[in-house]
Design a protein around this nucleic acid. Sequence first.
DNA 1: CGCCATATTGAAACTAGTCAACCGGAGTGG
DNA 2: CCACTCCGGTTGACTAGTTTCAATATGGCG
Lengths: 236, 236
Amino acid sequence: MTANQTFTNAKFDAGWSIRFESDEAAPAGGRVVSHRARSLIVDEGDASNAVYEIVEGGVMVFKLLPDGRRQIIEVLGVGDVFGLAPTSVSDVSAEALTPVRLVAFDRRAVEGDPALRDRLFNRLRSQICALHDHALLLGRKSAQERIATFIMRLVPGRGGVACTGPGRTGQTGRDDRTQVGLAMTRQEIADYLGLTIETVSRAFSALRREGIIAYEKQDEVRIANVCRLCHLTGSH
Amino acid sequence: MTANQTFTNAKFDAGWSIRFESDEAAPAGGRVVSHRARSLIVDEGDASNAVYEIVEGGVMVFKLLPDGRRQIIEVLGVGDVFGLAPTSVSDVSAEALTPVRLVAFDRRAVEGDPALRDRLFNRLRSQICALHDHALLLGRKSAQERIATFIMRLVPGRGGVACTGPGRTGQTGRDDRTQVGLAMTRQEIADYLGLTIETVSRAFSALRREGIIAYEKQDEVRIANVCRLCHLTGSH
DNA sequence: CGCCATATTGAAACTAGTCAACCGGAGTGG
DNA sequence: CCACTCCGGTTGACTAGTTTCAATATGGCG
C-alpha cells in the first residue's frame, strides 16, 4: 500500500529485481505488458500513444544519430515512467535492460485520470533531477569520474541525486551493501556515459588495480572502499 | 488568449524577447517577480518552495561541481518552467540570462490547482524532450556538431526537437529568419555545450571561415547556409 | 584615451578515441 | 569429449580532438 511512495530515488537505486507485490498490478486504464531482456519497447519516431510505468525490471531509454552513434539517456528502474513526449511521436527509443513488466496507460487515460497523472508527474520530477545530474556528468566529468559516479549510483542510498556525501555506512539503518550488480554490458555503460567501450574497460581495470573495487564476473562489482570511490565521482 | 498554446517547441525557439501581452500576468496563486540579467534566481541546495514559469526573458539552469566546473543544464525561454525538484531543496541553480519576468507559484498552490498543474506538466514534457536531445549532444556529438546544433536551435521552427530536417524555407509560412541573436557569452555557450571557451571560439571561427555563418558582433550571427549548417549538426 | 572584460588565435600537453591483437567463457558440432 | 567459433571484454600502440596555457586582439565604457 505504501509501495508507491517508498521508491524515492530518481536513480536505479530501487534496483531492477525488486518484485512489486501489488494488488493493483494493472491499475485502472492500464494494461500490463512484458518484454524479454534487450527487446525493443518503443522506437524513436513511433506513433505510440502509451505512457509506461515500470512494475518490474529495468529499461534503457536512448537516442541514435543517423551514423549509428547511440546515447543511452536514462536507465530506469521500478516505479519510473517513460513515453511522455509532448506529441504522440516518441522522441526516444526504449529497450528492456532485464526481463521487464510494464503497465501501459493510454494517453487519453492519463488525461482523464487526475490521480494517475499526479503519480506520473511526481515520478517525473525525480527523473528530471536524474537527467540534470546526468547532463553534468556528460558535460563536465572525466572518464574516471563517470565510472565512479555510475558505480556509486548503484549503491542503495548512495550516489543518487540526494547522496549525502562520504558519510559512514547505514545512514538509513540498513547495511551498506557494497556488492552491486551492473546488469549492463560494457557497451551499454559506454553509451550511457558518453564513452567508448575501451575507455570504460580501462577505467574499471584502473579502479580494480588501485584496490577500490573488485570483481571476478565483470558485472558483479564489490566496492572495497566506498569513501574513496565516492571521492572519485567529482561530486564530493 | 491563445498565447500559452503557441509556444510548442521545447527549445528557446520562442526567443527571449517576446513580450507576453497577457491579461493574466499573475495567475491565481502566483506572484510576478523580476530579475536583472545575470542575477541568481535560485541556488542549488536552496530550500525554495516555488515553481517558476517564465513570462518574459531567458533563464539558465545549471549545476556546479565542488571544484568550480559548471554545466548549464538547460536554457529556458518564455513559457518554460523550472523549480520542480521532488523535494523542497532545489537540485539546480538558476540565473537570469536576460532581464526576466517570472511567475512564482507556491508549491502548495500547484498541488491544489489541477489546471495549473496540467499546464506545468505539459510544459515539462516538452522540456524533457529537450533534455533528452541535449544528453545526446553532450554524450555523442563533436565540438563542431555541438556548435552547429546550438545555432540551429536558435532558428525559429528549425533545430528544435521536431525539426523536419534540411527542407526549404517557410515550412510554417513565415520567412526563414537566418539572423539569430545568441544572447549568451562564449563562456556560457561553453558551459552549456560541455566545451571550453576556446573550443567554442574556434568552432565559430571555423564556421565563419567556411562561409557557413557570418557575424560582426559576436552574438549576432547570420546563417549564410542553413542547409549546410543543419547537416553539420550530426542529426540529419 | 586607456582600462577591463571578453574573445580570438597559436602551440603544447593530454585525454579519450581508434585500430588491432589477444583473452576467456558459452555454446555448437564433429 | 574436445576443438572451434562467437561474443564480450581486456590490453596495447598510436592518433585525433579537445583542453590547457599563453599571448594577442577587440570592444564597451569610464
